[in-house]
Design a protein around this nucleic acid. Structure first.
Lengths: 346, 346
DNA sequence: CTATTTCATGCGAACGTTTGCATAAATTTT
DNA sequence: AAAATTTATGCAAACGTTCGCATGAAATAG
């Protein structure tokens, strides 16, 4: 393909009989240019089908007006919402987003980060999860503004900020809600393949139990195997199995790590012929799209993934313009729906 | 922020006491360079923390090794899977992806396309939906390899190709499956806000009815209002309402436009105390994550969204390397699960 | 030991912009 | 009418690469 060379500022300059600087200024609405020349050139540019070369502009200006976002997988609706928020906000700020998924592999993350640095993105939003020792070391070399989502910032990069949800508090809310409904035999169904948030939510649950003078009974704490396949079905199946076990222990309420696990718990109750919420209460986490379509509709802890994406981008944009930004922790909130109710007198 | 200038090839050249061409060649493993100089320079580059500037490289080479993908929204799992496929395949081919969502607004699409052209992406995957007249006209000016997903190619761009699913055939499969199970009063629950595919699936359904000498009874064809809100809940609610209406007409089976509509249909049956699949059969479309977690599990038409994304990117990559590519139509397939069964003798 | 080939390197242009500086023309001030 | 100012334009360097061409050095051939 000969690919008829694209038309550049020089071509316009030639056609208009002026220098390329003049064309450049005219196209940028510089005040240094007489108004008639400007309009003439702008018209000409349009007629000739000129499209500015952002690569050249970036090279010159040292600003690419692009950001990279790294997530583990886009098939998790939580991340999907997150990047949707990022993308929306980015568009509004005139930024374009590179998107890459790491499949939760640190090496992959490093490679992606490398690539983003080559492409001279202005900054990165990193919503992937694992940061182990070796990884953190490699991470030191990154000379880029970074917003870490749901992960604490380590290292001495001055432009490294973090935005997270308060999982501890979310866990407390969920447990407190169930407790307030009169439940005392509350089970926790966790996912071991999300170690960080899982631990914090569990911790919140345990704090509430302790606060009310209930010893944390280990038979009410359930965690999935490590190797549950990613995706809705994996969570669902794990949730169902854990819920069956918890129900067999006599739990009257189950706090699930996430909504898809809770969907599994609902299925478990159906299988045991236990009515939700009359006999068993179930609470999820995330407030995903699933909640309103389950039977019964799912009480859950709302995580504003969309807002979080937006905010992450706004923090990044602030950093880029040199404004100071503070690390932020967002609070989740309880959304009551149909799957929780006062404990029966079983 | 002074942002200590990044280290460039020239810096390495100075440090090594050679010319920048030598450095460039050394870093690119050119055979024109003595092996000891090459290793020395590569080590030096690593030590100095050199990161190549892809902008400059692209400017020079006229290839950015990036592609743009435009979808309507990422919160639709179908599109999420699609871009996941694109991204995977892109990584494998050494391409980086720009992602943008159009919210189904043609003007937005144009703007995004414009932006991609500025950034000199090598090609675009366009999985947005609407192409009306005015839009098509603007589209003529695009001088970029484009793969259109689920949309026919119009216009004279030689590098415009298309990849689609055969919705007609999918509709036939669904209807044929229900017919083969003995159902005769088969309803269709469509979504009017996806006009193209909705029409084709319906058409497939009607073709099957006709083929078997059943007149298409209009009371068995239901379509949602235009203004159903995007997202799972909207589809679900619309599906539930349509299903209620169809059940009232005496339908013994319902073919739903998509899985989330089918989820609504299942809820409708539960509300009417009709057992699925014993009394009513429900079939969905997409084979989304939802299917295995519904009760009963959902029989559906499989759309390989992930594969489609991969394939779209591969087609694009082929186009980029000048190989000829043919427009492709993929066949869906039937996935039998728990929501369909032989018609009862009602 | 000179003539030729091979090998390794440097020079400089090019990719498409933007922008500081110089300059010419037009305008205003004395 | 000359001097000072403003206005509009051009020149050329710079951003960080790559690559064709020229060139000097080393190796081989005669």
């Amino acid at each position: 393909m000969p690919a008829a060379r694209r038309i550049s500022i020089k071509d316009i300059a030639r056609a208009a009989g002026v220098s390329s600087s003049t064309v450049s200024r005219a196209l940028n609405d510089s005040s240094l240019i007489s108004v008639d020349v400007r309009t003439r050139i702008q018209r000409l540019a349009r007629e000739m089908g000129y499209t500015p070369n952002a690569l050249a502009q970036s090279l010159q200006s040292n600003r690419s007006h692009s950001v990279g976002v790294i997530i583990t997988t886009i098939s998790d609706p939580y991340f999907a919402r997150l990047v949707q928020g990022v993308e929306e906000a980015a568009r509004q700020k005139g930024l374009t987003v590179f998107m890459a998924t790491s499949s939760n592999d640190p090496d992959n993350e490093i490679r992606i980060l490398e690539n983003f640095q080559r492409r001279r993105v202005d900054g990165v939003i990193l919503a992937a999860s694992r940061i182990d020792e070796e990884y953190a070391r490699k991470f030191e070399h990154v000379r880029l503004p970074v917003i870490m989502v749901n992960n604490q910032a380590t290292g001495q990069n001055p432009d490294l900020h973090s935005l997270s949800m308060d999982d501890l508090s979310g866990g407390e809310m969920a447990a407190e809600h169930l407790y307030a409904l009169g439940h005392r035999r509350i089970g926790y169904a966790g996912m071991r393949n999300r170690p960080g948030s899982n631990a914090r939510r569990l911790q919140g649950y345990q704090a509430v139990m302790r606060r009310h003078g209930l010893e944390a009974r280990p038979e009410f704490i359930c965690n999935s195997p490590e190797d549950v396949p990613d995706g809705l079905e994996g969570d669902f199946t794990a949730g169902k199995e854990m819920a069956l076990a918890l129900l067999d222990q006599g739990a009257s309420a189950i706090f699930c790590y996430c909504d898809s696990v809770a969907a599994g718990a609902l299925a478990a109750c159906r299988e045991r012929n236990l009515a939700v919420p009359e006999q068993v209460s179930i609470i999820g986490y995330d407030d995903s799209d699933l909640c309103p379509i389950l039977t019964p509709t799912l009480t859950t802890i709302h995580q504003p993934a969309l807002d979080m994406g937006r905010m992450a981008l706004q923090m990044l944009a602030k950093t880029l313009s040199g404004e100071p930004v503070a690390d932020t922790v967002l609070q989740p909130s309880l959304v009551k729906r149909g799957s929780t109710a006062p404990a029966g007198q079983s």
